[in-house]
Design a protein around this nucleic acid. Sequence first.
DNA 1: TAGGCCATCTGGTCCT
DNA 2: AGGACCAGATGGCCTA
Length: 143
Amino acid sequence: MKSASTPDEDSCVDCQVQLKGAPKCPLRSMPTRVEGLTKRRLAANARERRRMQGLNTAFDSLRKVVPQWGEDKKLSKYETLQMALSYIMALNRILSEAERYGDGGDWSALHQCEQFHQDHYQNYLELGSSDTCDHFFTKSFSH
DNA sequence: TAGGCCATCTGGTCCT
DNA sequence: AGGACCAGATGGCCTA
């Protein structure tokens, strides 16, 4: 998102320096010690980039299992975490109540859980998203 | 144009 | 020593 080009496509293949328009890798003209430090820093940058990409992949996976009805709006990271927390708590509540009321096998609540409707999502949006999504779930699962 | 969200860089800290 | 993790800084993109 930061730039149109991905970090990898404009970087030196030898040392992972991001060239940003430079004709050749700047490490070639550095003293050995500085070059060593710079190389380590750049390697750390690359690792950090990979780590954050892994984190984002995990967020994408989480978004897929968390209720999200609006096709157009992607949940932010913060919203995703809030939604996941509330979702887990709501499911937990359903299981607790199922145990409390015996094993009659009435899974309608769970079925209902899987079938959130657009109007519920609309409620969620109207409530102001992340800070209030627990209220949203409380409201949605209150029966 | 301001504010939100994000990717990336960077230096510090902890762990192996 | 080097890798993983974290938080702060910075700057770009997008939307109201």
